[in-house]
Design a protein around this nucleic acid. Structure first.
Length: 394
DNA sequence: AAGTCGTGGTC
DNA sequence: TGACCAAGACT
């Protein structure tokens, strides 16, 4: 073995005290009011007692790269609209995206929807009807779109109290500090999985995994961890080294490109505006938007808008005054949207770079799923309509 | 196996 | 206030 390779993370000392300290802390200071982790009457499930898997599944997908506080209102609205597997399987993609609107990573919604139809189709009434569509194995859950190993482990431990480990960002941070791992966890995921599995309490996997996540979210936080409140302080190598904030070690992130996007709010003589539905895959897949595209070097923004509408919709417009300019940061790029009011001149709009295009009245916009940046454009548009101004001045 | 994929909270 | 980051999965 090359001596330059990082050592796999090892459990520090006996495991039982680690489990006991963590679970004692969790009983006292953990988050015990998460709705999908309780029975409908609000009581906590006993050891081994199952929870309704559907709500857990929905929650765990929403929680991918998304904090609990953000998820809660989305989860409640979702469960009201699609209370069970059959309801979700029967829903349209439009309804699904409406309820996911603003939550981000929209592929999660499409995959959840596809997974519901998959489960619904394969669990159809065997006449003797065991009637439970929910997998009990890691492989069974990972066969569903959008479910990786960590989400599968979360669902199985949470819904059925089965002993499957998890390895989300919280757990990676807690474990990296516990052992003072000298390299980014991403480079040693297999070792961190082994560590998570080794630590997991096989008698109380549901409580243990939840405790680990609560510890990461509330005590072992990314910045300024509250080591004084930590049940693992005496076991923690990063704390012993005197600088827990130094872990987990990070790679320097790649630079994010910056682009200017010209956007047209095109109106016709009747005051309707033109929107298009983005392609089903890729960035913001399946959502609706105001059409536009990237500004080319040396190009005036009005020319960008005119060119993009010609290339992507096959229409001719006059570009009028600016409605709003806004900046928006995605994970891997930063965009500035420069939005101009436009007047339609000629050409039936064609979906050359989208799924479909549609003329709608301003008050109909609320019934389409839009990404967050477009929601701000809509707000500016509504304000102008409310003020009684013409949509295509000039 | 690095890049792609959103948004809001937080300091 | 910009930069970091979150209950990751997929290609």
């Amino acid at each position: 073995m090359g001596s330059s390779r990082t050592r796999s993370p090892q459990v520090p000392g006996p495991i039982e005290p680690l489990r006991a300290h963590l679970l004692d802390w969790w009983e006292r200071d953990g988050r015990h009011h998460i709705p999908w982790k309780l029975h409908p009457d609000g009581s906590r499930p006993g050891p081994g007692e199952p929870l309704a898997a559907y709500g857990v599944w929905v929650a765990e997908v929403m929680l991918q790269q998304t904090q609990l506080a953000v998820v809660l209102p989305y989860w409640h609205r979702w469960m009201a609209a699609f209370p069970d597997l059959d309801a979700l399987a029967a829903a349209s993609e439009h309804e699904v995206l409406m309820l996911w609107q603003g939550l981000g990573y929209y592929a999660r919604a499409r995959r959840l929807h596809a997974g519901a139809r998959q489960l619904h189709a394969t669990s159809q009434p065997s006449p003797q009807g065991t009637g439970d569509p929910w997998p009990r194995t890691l492989e069974g859950w990972m066969a569903l779109p959008g479910i990786g190993r960590s989400t599968a482990g979360s669902i199985l431990s949470s819904a059925f109290d089965r002993p499957f480990a998890i390895l989300d960002g919280n757990v990676q941070r807690v474990l990296a500090r516990l052992v003072a791992h000298p390299a980014p966890p991403k480079r040693e995921l297999a070792g961190f999985w082994r560590l998570s599995e080794t630590l997991l309490d096989p008698q109380r996997p549901r409580a243990f995994n939840q405790a680990l996540m609560d510890l990461g979210a509330g005590v072992c936080t990314p910045r300024q961890p509250s080591c004084g409140a930590c049940p693992w302080q005496a076991h923690c190598a990063a704390y012993a080294a005197g600088d827990p904030g130094r872990f987990p070690v990070k790679d320097t992130p790649p630079p994010v490109p910056f682009q200017v996007i010209g956007v047209g709010v095109v109106s016709d003589a009747a005051g309707r505006v033109l929107i298009d539905q983005r392609l089903p895959e890729g960035l913001l897949g399946g959502l609706w938007e105001f059409p536009g595209g990237k500004q080319e070097p040396g190009e005036a923004i009005e020319a960008t808008i005119q060119r993009e509408l010609r290339e992507e919709l096959a229409i001719e417009v006059t570009v009028g005054e600016e409605l709003i300019t806004l900046e928006h940061a995605y994970s891997h790029k930063r965009l500035r949207f420069v939005v101009h009011l436009c007047r339609w001149l000629a050409g039936e709009p064609q979906p050359l770079a989208s799924q479909q295009v549609r003329w709608v009245t301003p008050d109909e916009l609320a019934s389409y799923p839009f990404p967050a940046a477009n929601a701000r454009i809509i707000a500016a548009l509504e304000a102008r309509v409310a003020a009684g101004s013409s949509l295509a001045a000039g």
